[in-house]
């Protein structure tokens, strides 16, 4: 289990979702990923994508115009 970070700043939805999806393909179950975005739409879209594809959103937060979505990669993804 490892922790990763994905810089999706200055990207507009759905690019942060696409990058999250592509990054998760390289990860293993139990890994966690912080996706850092500047498009607030990511707060809605990344969790929606995770629900659909069976991953868990551990936390979302907004900090200084940035949005951070913490995702846990699940086995049956």
């Amino acid at each position: 289990m490892a922790h990763f970070e994905l810089d999706a700043r200055r990207m507009f939805c759905p690019m942060p979702v696409i990058r999250t999806q592509d990054k998760i393909k390289e990860l293993s179950a139990g890994d966690t990923l912080d996706v850092i975005c500047t498009d607030p739409g990511a707060l809605h879209d990344i969790p929606a994508w995770c629900r659909i594809n069976g991953h868990i959103v551990l936390q979302t937060k907004e900090l200084n115009d940035e949005v951070i979505v913490k995702v846990e990669v699940c086995i049956d993804a």
Partner: peptide, 15 residues
């Protein structure tokens, strides 16, 4: 604020 493609997939319960 919603991405309609994601909304459709979620509504249908598909990847």
């Amino acid at each position: 604020k919603r991405n309609n493609a994601l909304w459709v997939a979620e509504t249908l319960g598909i990847k």
